[in-house]
Amino acid sequence: MAKLTGWRKVASVLWRAPENPQIFGAFECDARPLSAFIEAARAAGHHVTPTHLVGRAVAHALHEMPDLNTRFVAGRAVPRRTVDIFFITAVEADRDLSGVKVERADRKSAVALAHELADRARGLKEGRDPIFTRTKRTGNALPRPILRQLLRFSSWWTGNLDRDFPALGLERSPFGSAMVTSVGMFGIPMGFAPLASFFKVPLMVLAGEIADKPVAVDGRVEVRPSISITATIDHRVADGWHISQVLRHFRAYMADPQAFELEMPAPAAGAAGRAGLESSAPAPGSPDGGGTSGT
């Protein structure tokens, strides 16, 4: 048995044994299919962004690989009832963060998702969301030790037990099945987002900036627009095999978004238009869905 000396001894004093189950992954995608879909959507009057398509790709992957769409209860992995994606959103002139959970994101078209997210994010930024306002006011007023305990209890109540918490204005599973965020609009090429313990989700996906990069194509080097994708994953829920399956379905969507969407709908007008957008996504297993069973 060797005695620890030098830096190894110093390191053993500085840090405790690792307890964090987070694992990380990164890769780059050809951004041309995303750009083509976004261009077509905007020509039809819909403000779709790369973040919306990344969120749809995550929802599709979780639909196809439901083993990751789970929550922990008393040491058991319990399947979630729906595939919901939480999009992190900047508020208060981009000085603070909040977010919007889009429910049944695997059953909504990218355009419907973009409209819903835009409408609800606008309400957050303009201070018109009473639940967010009340929750933020409560958080700001509580002392840090009390807030820490409240967050631990509320995350267990809403995340593990899947119950509403009216006292704090929180609904069940407030962060959904997975979380999606982006730093591309800030000109940041790549980054990794942390999985906080109170999120109670197994997956956080971050989209970076779309930029021209050299890639190998048939033995030659070409310059193509690429987007970096990083993921933070809870190793308690997923191992290499699970991640490989999710990645396969995620990449399939990113390589050809249009194959998983119906014909681009006309610009929506009011609630009726948005309802039409929601119904434009093909049902799982339909011939229009693309991939193995479609979304």
Rank of each mutant, 00 (worst) to 15 (best):
S98G: 13
L168K: 02
K125C: 13
R81F: 07
L142E: 01
A93G: 10
R81A: 15
R76S: 15
R76F: 12
L168W: 11
F86T: 15
P130A: 08
A93C: 01
A114Q: 03
V83N: 00
R71K: 09
I85G: 00
L68A: 13
D84Q: 03
L142A: 05
S109W: 03
G127H: 11
F153Q: 08
R95K: 11
P79F: 05
A74G: 12
G159V: 09
R81H: 11
L151W: 03
S155M: 06
D106Y: 00
R148D: 14
D84R: 01
R76P: 04
L142W: 01
V102P: 04
V91W: 06
T133S: 10
T82D: 11
D164M: 05
P66M: 09
L117E: 05
I85L: 01
T138D: 03
R152F: 06
W157F: 13
V83L: 00
A118L: 10
M65F: 13
D67H: 05
D94C: 01
R137I: 08
A114F: 07
K108N: 06
A77M: 12
R107W: 01
D67K: 07
T82A: 10
S154L: 11
L68Y: 09
I85D: 00
A74S: 15
L147E: 06
G99M: 01
R71D: 05
S173K: 08
G99K: 02
S155K: 07
R122W: 08
M65A: 15
T135Q: 09
V91I: 15
L142H: 01
V100Y: 02
I146H: 02
F86M: 12
S98A: 13
K125G: 15
F132A: 12
H115W: 12
G159Y: 10
T135S: 11
T133M: 03
R152M: 12
A121L: 05
P166R: 05
V100F: 01
A167I: 10
D94Q: 06
W157E: 03
W157N: 02
T70W: 04
R120Y: 13
D84H: 02
R122E: 13
T138P: 00
L151P: 03
A90Y: 01
G123Q: 13
T138Y: 00
R172A: 14
E171T: 13
D164S: 06
K125Y: 07
V78L: 13
G159M: 08
V100H: 00
V102L: 12
G159C: 08
F87C: 04
K136A: 08
L113D: 08
R128H: 15
A121Q: 04
R76N: 14
L170D: 01
L97C: 05
L150K: 00
F165L: 12
I146T: 14
P130M: 07
T138W: 03
A112D: 02
